[in-house]
Amino acid sequence: MSYPLGWSVIPQMMIKRERWPGGNSYRSVIPLVRPGQNVLPEQPVIRVEQVRFQEVQPYQESRTSRSRLSLSSASNPALRAIPQAELAFSGLWGRVTELTRRGGVVIESRATVIQGKLGVGYQVCGSLTLWHNGRITPQKPGTILVIPGPLTFSQLRQASEAGVAGVIAGSITLRDLEGFLRVDLLQLLASEQIERITAHLPRLTLMFTEGVGEFSMPARIANLLSSYQGAPVLLSGLTSTRLHLVPELLISLPYNKQEHWTPVHPDLTLAIGAYVRINSGEYMGATGVIDYIFSYDQEFPSGIRTRAMRIMLEDGTPVVVPSTSLERLG
């Protein structure tokens, strides 16, 4: 899946996003702000009365015997409707530009944008918190947890029980993700009813920078997130190949940097100095910087001769890879 904005990470750009808590099962939606109004991250912008669903009979599952539900059964289980009123907070420094027909609030902000390869869950806002080794313990409401390495099924359960609003991680195995969600991932990503189906998934928003597998988050992304420790953020996990949706994390530039800033415009050219990810072969998932472009085609162990570039990986290892295996990140 390609990135709509060009790069997976854009340090500074002007964005407009609809603040919408997700789903369509609302009895009422009341905007609390008006167009032209400036908003703060912790400011409530929408009041909703939501109808949540609870399974009539809890399911039983074990770590070794986890069943997957089809999307039809996930969207039509034996459920009980429970109305509940709640506030949706802005999550961004910015200015309200419009109110949408469904009651959402469009906010314009100067922000850092990080897009993931895969995600699940509605838009949530909270405080960015770095996870340190050990068990995930109870967190403050609205915590967005950053786990630089691969995420496991055990950590997912711990995060859910700890009251975490969202998790940003490097990757996850297909077995662990499907076991936690109890749906077929490919059917989920291809569905046109992604918001409706998400209402019946665990209430934990997830974003994976590297997608499915056992890959750690690139050091540059991990370091960037570390620099925003404690910052208010807006995270969306909705992912759809059919609707061209990718998960993203929005971090408004600090208030003192909102006035003096320079937007960054993505450049997809594979040039010397470009930060790239390797998408196939022995070094799949590795990231680094292009430091040499060969003038002539290079021959690889497979016998194929093609245009190639030398990449200096983040650990200092130089590797030669085909140009077609590279994706520019920044």
Rank of each mutant, 00 (worst) to 15 (best):
residue 183 V to K: 04
residue 179 G to W: 09
residue 277 R to K: 13
residue 240 S to M: 12
residue 257 K to G: 00
residue 272 I to Q: 11
residue 299 E to Y: 07
residue 295 S to L: 14
residue 263 P to C: 12
residue 220 R to V: 02
residue 303 G to F: 10
residue 191 S to T: 15
residue 218 P to C: 00
residue 287 T to Y: 02
residue 289 V to R: 08
residue 202 P to K: 07
residue 300 F to E: 06
residue 288 G to S: 07
residue 218 P to R: 02
residue 188 L to N: 01
residue 227 S to L: 03
residue 247 P to N: 04
residue 230 G to N: 08
residue 181 L to F: 10
residue 194 I to E: 10
residue 298 Q to R: 13
residue 297 D to G: 13
residue 220 R to N: 06
residue 252 S to Q: 11
residue 297 D to Q: 12
residue 269 T to W: 03
residue 201 L to K: 05
residue 191 S to L: 10
residue 228 Y to G: 01
residue 181 L to P: 02
residue 304 I to M: 10
residue 278 I to K: 03
residue 284 M to D: 08
residue 204 L to T: 03
residue 259 E to F: 02
residue 194 I to D: 13
residue 209 T to I: 03
residue 269 T to D: 14
residue 222 A to W: 02
residue 220 R to C: 00
residue 208 F to N: 01
residue 258 Q to M: 11
residue 187 Q to Y: 10
residue 210 E to I: 01
residue 185 L to F: 07
residue 198 T to L: 06
residue 245 L to K: 12
residue 301 P to A: 00
residue 180 F to W: 06
residue 246 V to K: 13
residue 240 S to G: 11
residue 228 Y to W: 12
residue 276 V to Y: 03
residue 206 L to Q: 03
residue 230 G to P: 06
residue 220 R to T: 02
residue 286 A to G: 05
residue 300 F to G: 09
residue 258 Q to V: 05
residue 291 D to F: 08
residue 187 Q to N: 15
residue 204 L to A: 01
residue 246 V to G: 00
residue 236 S to M: 06
residue 263 P to A: 14
residue 252 S to C: 12
residue 185 L to Q: 09
residue 282 E to Q: 14
residue 187 Q to V: 00
residue 273 G to P: 06
residue 199 A to I: 11
residue 210 E to M: 05
residue 256 N to T: 13
residue 241 T to L: 12
residue 177 L to Y: 04
residue 253 L to M: 09
residue 306 T to K: 02
residue 278 I to L: 08
residue 201 L to T: 07
residue 305 R to E: 13
residue 184 D to S: 13
residue 236 S to E: 12
residue 267 D to T: 09
residue 239 T to A: 01
residue 181 L to Q: 06
residue 265 H to T: 15
residue 284 M to Q: 14
residue 282 E to F: 04
residue 266 P to V: 14
residue 244 H to E: 11
residue 281 G to W: 05
residue 248 E to T: 00
residue 259 E to W: 03
residue 215 F to L: 15
residue 185 L to R: 09
residue 228 Y to F: 10
residue 285 G to T: 06
residue 214 E to K: 10
residue 185 L to I: 13
residue 239 T to V: 04
residue 204 L to H: 08
residue 202 P to Y: 09
residue 192 E to N: 14
residue 194 I to K: 01
residue 233 V to M: 05
residue 214 E to G: 11
residue 247 P to C: 04
residue 225 L to W: 07
residue 243 L to R: 14
residue 181 L to V: 10
residue 206 L to M: 09
residue 240 S to F: 08
residue 222 A to G: 02
residue 292 Y to F: 15
residue 193 Q to I: 04
residue 235 L to C: 03
residue 270 L to R: 09
residue 228 Y to A: 04
